[in-house]
Simulated scan of single mutants.
Amino acid sequence: MKKHDQDFMKRQNRLTVFEIIKNQRPISRASIAKQTGMSATTVSRIVGELTEEGYIQESEQVSAGLGRKSTLLGLVDGSVLSIGIELDRHAISVGIVDLQGNIVCSEVYSRLSEDSSTDTLERLGSIVLEMLERNAIKRNRVVGIGVGLPGIVNIEKGIVVFSVQLGWKNVRLSERLKELTGFEVAVDNELKVKALAEHLKGAAIGSNRTALIGFGNGVGSALIIEGGIYRGEMNSAGEIGHTTIDPNGMLCECGKPGCLQTYINISSLLSEANKIRPIHTIEELFDAYRVKEPWAVHLIDRALMYMSITVNNVVCMYNPDSVILSGELVDKFPEICSEVKELCSTRLVWEPLRESFSFHRSELNERGVVIGSGLLAQTRFFVLE
C-alpha cells in the first residue's frame, strides 16, 4: 500500500474512534475494536494519541464480567470549542460551545432594527474578541464561528442572500467576520441550525424525520431527514412564512401581500392590536388576551388557528414523525403549544395524518440557535490531523 493511502487510513481510523467515543461515551477500548473491526493494538494506539493530545480521558474502571475490568473512555469537552451566534431583529446572542453542545458561557445584547450590516458585524467582532478575553479562553482552542440568522443564506460562500427581518441583501458575512476576528465563519438559516441542535441534543433525539416550526418575529420551518438538513436548491426550503394565504390580504414586510406570517408574527400582531389601543409589547397583548378582552381574544385565536394550519401544511408536505414548535412566541407563552396541539388533533390537521407524528415543544428554547450554530462550526472546521 502506498504511503499516502496508509496515511489516509490512519486519519480515517482516528476520526472513526473519536466519533465513536464522542457519540457513545463512556465506552471501552474493547467495544470500539468490536464495532470497527480494528485490532486492539490499533485502537489502543489511537486512544493513546488522542489522550496525549488532550481530546479524551479515561474514567474509573468498571467490571466487564468474570472479574475483569475495562477502563471507560470519554471526551474532554473543553478540548475543542466554537462560538455560536444568533442574529435576530432586536437581539444578538453569543455563546461558547463545547464538543457536546454545552454552552460554556453566553451573553445577549440588544440590537437596533435600523442597524446596518456593517455596524452589526463590527460590533459582533468586538463582542467575540471581548468574550474570549473576559473568559480567559485561548484562541487555539476555538475552531471557528457559526452564525444563525433569519433569511436565505448561501452556505458555501457565507453570504446572506436576503433577510427580511434584518433588512439585509447580499451581505458577505463570513468574509467580513473572518476579517474582524481571524476565525473561520460558517453561516446558515437560524431554524436549520436550531433543528440540527434539537436533533442532536433536544426534542428530536431518535427522530428520523423532524419538522421544526418557528413562530416569533417571523414564521419558518426546517426539516431534518436521517440526521441531515433538507435545504432545497437555494437553501430556502422551509420558508413557509412567505407562502400566500390571501392575495388580497395584509402587506408583508417582504413587499408581498397576504403572506402567512402576517397573521402570526409579533410585529403584525402588535400592529393590529394598536388599531384598538396602544400596545407596546407582545406581553401586553397576551395580558389582554388572558383577561378576555374581545379584540385580543380575536387576534390571538386567529393566530393560533393559522399556527395550526401551518402545522397541517408542513405535515401534509413532509410527513414527519416529529413536529417541534419553537420561537419567541412559544418560548414566552408555553400555553400556545397545548392550544395548537388541541386544534391540530381535533380539526386542523388532515385526519389520516393526525396520529402519524409526535408533537413537541422545543427543549432548547432560546439556546437552540447558539448551540446549533456552534455545532455547525465544529462540523465545518474541526479536523483531527
Score class of each variant (00 low, 15 high):
Phe215Val: 09
Ile103Arg: 00
Met234Cys: 09
Thr243Lys: 02
Leu304Gln: 08
Gly238Lys: 00
Phe183Met: 02
Leu15Val: 09
Thr42Leu: 05
Ser221Phe: 01
Leu353Met: 14
Phe8Leu: 15
Ile205Cys: 04
Arg141Met: 03
Leu329Arg: 05
Arg361Ala: 12
Phe382Leu: 13
Ile279Ala: 07
Met317Ser: 10
Ser221Gln: 03
Leu75Gln: 03
Arg302Ala: 04
Lys201Gly: 05
Leu75His: 02
Glu335His: 07
Ser326Cys: 12
Lys192Gly: 01
Leu329Ile: 15
Trp350Gln: 08
Ile137Cys: 01
Lys201Tyr: 15
Ser271Thr: 14
Ser267Glu: 15
Glu52Cys: 07
Ile27Trp: 09
Glu184Pro: 13
Ser345Pro: 09
Ser236Lys: 05
Thr210Lys: 03
Cys344Tyr: 03
Thr71Val: 06
Ser79Gln: 06
Lys194Val: 07
Arg14Thr: 12
Glu86Gly: 14
Leu191Asn: 12
Glu184Asn: 15
Tyr289Ser: 03
Gly232Asp: 00
Leu66Met: 06
Lys22Trp: 09
Ser70Ala: 11
Glu49Asn: 03
Ile229Gln: 08
Arg290Leu: 13
Thr41Tyr: 02
Arg134Ser: 13
Ala136Tyr: 10
Gly214Lys: 10
Leu269Trp: 03
Glu53Ser: 13
Val370Gln: 05
Arg277Met: 12
Val94Ala: 03
Gly167Val: 08
His298Glu: 15
Gln35Asn: 04
Ile324Glu: 03
Ile83Val: 15
Val17Met: 02
Leu353Lys: 07
Val164Glu: 12
Leu166Lys: 01
Asn313His: 07
Ile282Phe: 13
Leu50Met: 14
Ala40Leu: 11
Met234Arg: 14
Ser59Met: 10
Pro26Met: 09
Lys34Asn: 09
Leu177His: 01
Gln24His: 15
Gln6Gly: 02
Lys10Cys: 04
Asn189Trp: 10
Val315Lys: 01
Glu284Ala: 15
Leu375Gly: 02
Ser373Asn: 05
Arg11Trp: 08
Val80Asp: 10
Val323Trp: 00
Gln61Met: 09
Gly249Lys: 03
His242Asp: 08
Met131Glu: 11
Ile264Asn: 04
Leu299Asp: 06
Gly368Phe: 13
Ile145Cys: 04
Ile229Arg: 11
Glu226His: 14
Ile96Ala: 01
Glu190Arg: 02
Gly241Met: 06
Gly151Asn: 11
Leu132Met: 14
Val161Glu: 14
Glu53Val: 08
Lys178Asn: 11
Ala211Lys: 00
Ile32Tyr: 01
Ile155Asp: 15
Lys3Leu: 13
Ala186Ser: 15
Thr243Phe: 06
Gln165Gly: 07
Gly151Cys: 12
Ala377Phe: 05
Glu355Ile: 04
Thr41Ala: 07
Leu348Asp: 04
Arg354Val: 05
Leu384Gln: 07
Lys10Val: 07
Ile205Arg: 15
Val17Leu: 06
Cys105Arg: 00
Thr71Ala: 06
Asp188Cys: 07
Ala377Ser: 10
Val17Lys: 00
Glu226Thr: 09
Glu355Met: 07
Ile103Asp: 01
Ser358Ala: 10
Arg45Ser: 11
Ser221Tyr: 02
Ile96Asn: 03
Gly202Val: 14
Ala237Ser: 13
Ile96Gly: 01
Leu299Trp: 10
Arg176Met: 05
Ala237Glu: 08
Trp350Leu: 15
Ser221Gly: 15
Ile279Phe: 10
Ser338Met: 05
Cys337Glu: 10
